[in-house]
Design a protein around this nucleic acid. Structure first.
Lengths: 337, 337
DNA sequence: CAGGGTTATCGAAGCGCTTCAACTGGAAGG
DNA sequence: CCTTCCAGTTGAAGCGCTTCGATAACCCTG
């Protein structure tokens, strides 16, 4: 491996000069810079990451902690992760992928060893065991999701409360008075992952305000589960004219089942989904939906954590406003027969 | 941060002794070991990753290069990534997440800087620009997928040729003589990602051997695309009695469309999918399928790359044999009217 | 009990980089 | 013309760890 010292010799300057050319932390004459850069290119020099980390006590690595579960919608997680990785590169950082498996120990390990300069946590639960450690660690950290007590921490998330409200509003405006919500799997609520509960709260609050009847049911991610949930919903509320779906896995099944029941979308029932745009446009009916801005969330998380590392940002709650796109699956409530 | 020197002082031994306790590379008396370990615990010591990497020229990091595309089935990628991460931890390594974005430059950077000890590449194309670099880098590397020339490289993958063959065999045994294959999006074939083409080859070869008529059509991942593809298939081959699907995204749409056409599964048409088991059991009909062993692939990739790092393994092609699980979507070919 | 082999420990020399204090030569200012 | 200043450069001191060779204490064997 080529070292900085060899580059220095090749360029006829001292090691520190090469270092300053690389970091730009001191002024270097154009001629010298050019010569050094030339040597770097010729020798194919790459700074040694370990040496750099040791000398500067900065690793230029961001740790990203992902959930290990499979009951969450993976594509969203994946898209966030990829957005984090590409945005991090734009800031000259790399991403270390941690799974939730190790739990709080992973935080301790990464922070203690100086492996990463900063952390981004996904799938944060309301009362997350990793948070106390994070608070006392003094490392920049950003959560994707919102815990019960976000004090002292920076969080990014879609404003799910507003998302719920927005869905209800849209349908209420179209005249729907009986709305059913197909939620995430029961386990997601039991685990107290905030987003599902916040969505439900937003839905309920708005529904109450607008005088809309709301039925909220969790649903596992399979066709069979959707079939069961649907028949129970229609049993309890035969006058349901609209569905709001928050479990991406059952969107197709729901549309398929409605078709089998002879219910046309949107003429007989309207459907609004909370899902990535891609899913919404690939369904059998182009779905009116509130997008989950996965890419944006990942990007923001990195921007925020970098800003914190530079000491620029205070702790804050970065709630992305939901945007509802009207497509072909929602329409005026049918006239009651 | 607590350093090794402080631990040494606290335990009343030299720094090197602490180091040897940690690494186990020299024998240490039980009494000393105990004392050192006690000090480590009391002080909450964590070895500094950078210093370690510098001194030992091993970072204990595996780089995982993922595709950035969204036309591949993300959950499989994600599951592989998670399996890689957890298996790596079991070998006391961490995972650095790279996206394909940087292309070959990422290989150069990571190898050159000593950031990672080893690499795992996903989504390898037949003629992948990263491979020459990898070969000359002398770092242990494992590909998930198989390039045109795997010489000098270790590869892990599902045996997609055998997978294709297996699907055809199963259906042929059931008496099907006209089989349609719904493949990946056209872009996947054009990019020459080997797996899609290998599957097709396996399908065709076996079909020819068994005297089965095969129609192979690529298909984008949307309901509308599936509808178009299906009608074209049935136009060209009205006698089609079985479908093999390799694009997870259109499994639900296909089943839904068949239902609409009044074709019962498996009485009128059989369906075999190539997809993760989870997808197969969550569909409206429990699908006969060949599983994509994502977790196993990720795990194997790490095991192999670790073995290479220890100098234990030669280059090889680790083809996982496909396993077909018969569920409710395949049955005897209907008697021609 | 001398000689050889183990076992347990230590000291010191780096690993390749960053960064600080110090130095130099020339431009600017009085 | 001498001081002051600053841009440009350097040498040297670490950063916290691993590892090699040396040492000392011990146990065996003949």
């Amino acid at each position: 491996m080529v070292t900085l010292a060899e580059v220095a010799r090749h360029a006829g300057v001292s090691a520190s000069t090469v270092s300053y050319v690389l970091s730009g932390k001191r002024s270097i004459s154009a001629a010298t810079r050019e010569r050094v850069e030339q040597s770097i290119r010729e020798l194919g020099y790459h700074p040694n990451a370990g040496a750099r980390a040791l000398a500067s006590s900065k690793s230029n690595i961001i740790a990203l902690m992902m959930p290990l579960r499979t009951d969450m919608y993976m594509p969203v997680m994946m898209e966030i992760a990829l957005a984090v990785a590409t945005t991090a590169r734009a800031h000259d950082h790399d991403v270390l992928l941690l799974t939730g498996e190790e739990g709080p120990a992973a935080v301790r390990r990464v922070v203690g060893s100086g492996l990463a300069d900063a952390m981004i946590l996904m799938d944060v639960e309301l009362d997350d065991a990793r948070l106390p450690l994070l608070r006392e660690s003094e490392r920049p950290a950003v959560l994707i999701g919102i815990p019960a007590d976000p004090g002292g921490l920076t969080c990014v998330d879609l404003d799910f409360t507003a998302t719920g409200a927005l869905c209800v509003e849209h349908l209420a405006e179209l005249g729907h008075r009986d709305i059913a919500v197909v939620g995430e799997a029961a386990a997601v609520y039991e685990r107290h992952t905030g987003f599902a509960e916040r969505t439900r709260d937003g839905l309920r609050a708005r529904a109450a305000e607008l005088g809309v009847r709301l039925l909220h049911r969790p649903c596992e991610g399979s066709y069979a589960a959707m079939a069961g949930t649907l028949s129970r919903i229609l049993d309890e509320r035969p006058d349901t004219t609209a569905f709001i779906v928050q479990n991406e896995a059952v969107i197709d099944p729901l549309l398929s089942l409605l078709r089998q029941l002879g219910k046309a979308v949107p003429e007989d029932v309207s459907v609004v989904a909370i899902c990535p745009d891609q899913v919404a446009v690939q369904a059998s009916v182009r779905l009116t939906s509130v997008a989950i801005p996965a890419h944006e969330m990942g990007r923001r998380a990195v921007e925020l954590v970098m800003a914190k590392a530079r000491g620029e940002k205070d702790d804050l709650l970065d709630l992305l406003p939901p945007r509802l796109t009207v497509r072909a699956s929602s329409g005026p409530a049918p006239v009651p027969r």
